[in-house]
Simulated scan of single mutants.
Amino acid sequence: MSALLELVSYVPQAESQSNSVLSMFMYCNTLFPALFCVLSLALGFVIRKNEKRVPEMKAELAQRETRTEA
Protein backbone atom coordinates (compact mmCIF):
# COMPACT_ATOMS: atom_id res chain seq x y z
CA MET A 1 0.00 0.00 0.00
CA SER A 2 2.86 2.38 0.71
CA ALA A 3 4.07 2.08 -2.89
CA LEU A 4 0.63 3.11 -4.12
CA LEU A 5 0.54 6.06 -1.74
CA GLU A 6 3.90 7.23 -3.02
CA LEU A 7 2.35 7.46 -6.48
CA VAL A 8 -0.22 9.98 -5.28
CA SER A 9 2.05 12.22 -3.18
CA TYR A 10 1.00 11.09 0.29
CA VAL A 11 2.38 13.30 3.06
CA PRO A 12 2.52 11.54 6.45
CA GLN A 13 1.30 13.55 9.44
CA ALA A 14 -0.32 16.20 7.22
CA GLU A 15 -3.45 17.88 8.58
CA SER A 16 -5.33 17.25 5.35
CA GLN A 17 -4.57 15.02 2.39
CA SER A 18 -5.24 15.69 -1.27
CA ASN A 19 -8.22 14.15 -3.00
CA SER A 20 -5.97 11.73 -4.88
CA VAL A 21 -4.63 10.37 -1.58
CA LEU A 22 -8.13 9.99 -0.18
CA SER A 23 -9.22 8.22 -3.36
CA MET A 24 -6.26 5.86 -3.11
CA PHE A 25 -7.22 5.02 0.48
CA MET A 26 -10.74 4.23 -0.73
CA TYR A 27 -9.42 2.06 -3.58
CA CYS A 28 -7.02 0.20 -1.30
CA ASN A 29 -9.78 -0.55 1.19
CA THR A 30 -12.70 -1.29 -1.12
CA LEU A 31 -12.05 -1.62 -4.84
CA PHE A 32 -8.83 -3.66 -4.79
CA PRO A 33 -10.17 -6.29 -2.34
CA ALA A 34 -13.39 -6.53 -4.36
CA LEU A 35 -11.42 -7.10 -7.57
CA PHE A 36 -9.31 -9.81 -5.92
CA CYS A 37 -12.48 -11.46 -4.63
CA VAL A 38 -14.03 -11.50 -8.10
CA LEU A 39 -10.80 -12.83 -9.58
CA SER A 40 -10.57 -15.63 -7.02
CA LEU A 41 -14.21 -16.57 -7.60
CA ALA A 42 -13.61 -16.73 -11.35
CA LEU A 43 -10.53 -18.91 -10.89
CA GLY A 44 -12.42 -21.12 -8.46
CA PHE A 45 -15.18 -21.55 -11.03
CA VAL A 46 -12.69 -22.59 -13.72
CA ILE A 47 -10.95 -25.04 -11.39
CA ARG A 48 -14.24 -26.56 -10.25
CA LYS A 49 -15.40 -26.93 -13.83
CA ASN A 50 -12.18 -28.75 -14.74
CA GLU A 51 -12.35 -30.98 -11.65
CA LYS A 52 -15.63 -32.39 -12.93
CA ARG A 53 -13.83 -33.45 -16.11
CA VAL A 54 -10.94 -35.23 -14.36
CA PRO A 55 -12.48 -38.73 -14.51
CA GLU A 56 -13.20 -38.25 -18.22
CA MET A 57 -9.62 -37.09 -18.83
CA LYS A 58 -8.19 -40.05 -16.91
CA ALA A 59 -10.28 -42.47 -18.94
CA GLU A 60 -9.13 -40.87 -22.17
CA LEU A 61 -5.47 -41.09 -21.10
CA ALA A 62 -5.89 -44.74 -20.14
CA GLN A 63 -7.48 -45.41 -23.52
CA ARG A 64 -4.56 -43.73 -25.31
CA GLU A 65 -2.08 -45.80 -23.30
CA THR A 66 -3.75 -49.06 -24.26
CA ARG A 67 -3.84 -47.97 -27.92
CA THR A 68 -0.13 -47.17 -27.99
CA GLU A 69 0.80 -50.46 -26.26
CA ALA A 70 -1.15 -52.55 -28.74
Results as ranks from 00 to 15, higher is better:
T30P: 01
K58P: 03
S20F: 07
R53I: 07
L41V: 13
V8C: 03
A3C: 12
K49C: 02
A59N: 15
F32N: 01
V21A: 01
P12R: 02
E6I: 01
A59M: 13
S23H: 12
E60W: 15
T66W: 15
S9G: 07
Q17K: 05
V11R: 07
C37R: 12
L43S: 06
T68G: 07
S20K: 10
E6R: 12
T30C: 02
A70K: 15
Q63V: 07
S20Y: 10
R53F: 09
C28M: 14
P55D: 05
L43M: 12
M57F: 15
C37K: 10
L43R: 07
A59V: 09
K58D: 10
F25T: 03
M57W: 14
F32R: 00
P12G: 01
M57G: 05
V8K: 01
R67I: 14
V54S: 02
R53Q: 08
N19C: 05
V21T: 01
L39T: 06
F36R: 10
Q13D: 15
E51H: 09
E15H: 05
K58A: 10
E6W: 04
R48F: 08
N29P: 00
S40Q: 07
Q63R: 15
A59S: 15
L41D: 03
E51F: 12
A34R: 07
Y27K: 08
S20M: 10
N29Q: 08
A3M: 08
L31Y: 08
L41M: 05
Q63D: 14
M57Y: 14
E65I: 14
K58V: 13
T30K: 02
V46N: 00
F36S: 05
Y27E: 10
L4M: 09
S23M: 13
F36Q: 08
L35W: 08
E60A: 13
E56F: 12
F45H: 01
E56C: 06
V11Y: 00
R53Y: 12
L43A: 03
M24D: 02
L31H: 06
A14Y: 00
P55R: 02
C28W: 00
S18K: 06
E51W: 11
L41H: 02
R67A: 14
L41R: 03
I47E: 03
S20D: 15
L4S: 06
S9E: 10
E65A: 11
G44P: 03
Q63H: 14
A14T: 04
L41I: 11
S18A: 06
T66R: 15
R64V: 10
L4A: 11
E60G: 03
R53K: 14
L22F: 06
K52W: 07
R64I: 12
V21G: 00
V38L: 11
C37Y: 12
L39F: 05
N29G: 14
A34G: 06
L61E: 09
A62K: 15
V8L: 06
S16A: 09
F25C: 03
G44Y: 01
R48S: 09
V8G: 04
T30S: 09
A62Y: 12
A42T: 08
E69Y: 13
V21W: 01
E60Y: 09
V38W: 04
V46H: 03
L7Q: 12
S23C: 08
G44V: 02
M24P: 03
N50W: 07
V46Q: 06
P12F: 00
L5E: 00
M26I: 00
V38M: 07
L41P: 02
Q63Y: 15
Q63P: 02
E65D: 15
V46S: 05
K52S: 05
L22V: 09
E60I: 05
